[in-house]
Design a protein around this nucleic acid. Structure first.
Length: 197
DNA sequence: TTCCCGATTTACT
DNA sequence: GTAAATCGGGAAA
């Protein structure tokens, strides 16, 4: 069952970031289905978060997607090399988003290996935001797509394994001044597919 | 139009 | 541990 619109429309992006852990992110791309369990997320708290692209209510062509109502993907090109995928949350006008930083592959591992040019499955397949997007075939074309559609979506797992959540500061946001220290990064304890434990 | 630099990854030393 | 790869967004001019 896909997560419904109400899951994403909530205003508490930190709560949504925590609840996305353990959920399953799917894509249908290149005629292939692939999916992984979300193991690591980061919350970006809209206009008041100095680490957020929408800090200070910045509205540009790129950030406009974040201002839409929750339940769509925000995919952006970083360092001229990588695509990073976010889950937009909150009501229209509130530009909150959750960065999906890592996943444990569960479906379509063969096609993920081809996309990543790897021989065998290992955490290197998807233990980082750029790697995860590459593994799932996510490109800029996914920007703005509904998470209730046929190309990218999120489901609750069939069987729920209990897990502990580790809370840390976010990564790669040294420009965010005092907001560098906000406890907005979450990952599943003892999970191998984590970007930087 | 110019300039700086980034929510990263990978290959080296 | 350090550095290169690589290009578009955003602010300033």
């Amino acid at each position: 069952m896909k997560l419904d619109k109400d899951f994403y429309l909530r205003e508490d992006v930190v709560l949504v970031a925590r609840e996305l852990l353990g959920k399953v992110l799917y894509t249908f791309q290149d005629g292939a289905l692939s999916a992984g369990i979300i193991t690591e997320t980061e919350a970006y708290n809209g206009i008041e978060d100095k680490a957020s692209h929408a800090y200070g209510n910045r509205r540009t062509q790129r950030t406009e997607v974040m201002y839409a109502a929750g339940g769509i993907a925000y995919v952006y090109f970083c360092y001229g090399l990588h695509h990073l995928v976010n889950v937009v949350t909150g009501r229209e006008g509130n530009p909150q988003a959750v960065l999906v930083r890592a996943m444990k592959p569960v479906l379509g591992i063969d096609v993920m290996l081809i996309r990543r040019k790897m021989q065998r499955n290992s955490p290197l397949l998807s233990n980082g935001p750029g790697k995860l997007s590459q593994a799932l075939g996510i490109t800029g074309n996914f920007n703005g797509l509904s998470l209730l559609g046929q190309q990218i979506w999120i489901e609750a797992p069939l069987v729920n394994k209990p897990f502990e959540i580790v809370t840390r500061t976010r990564i790669g946001i040294d420009y965010a001044e005092e907001h560098v220290y906000l406890p907005y990064r979450f990952y599943i304890k003892d999970e191998k597919y984590i970007s930087k434990p």
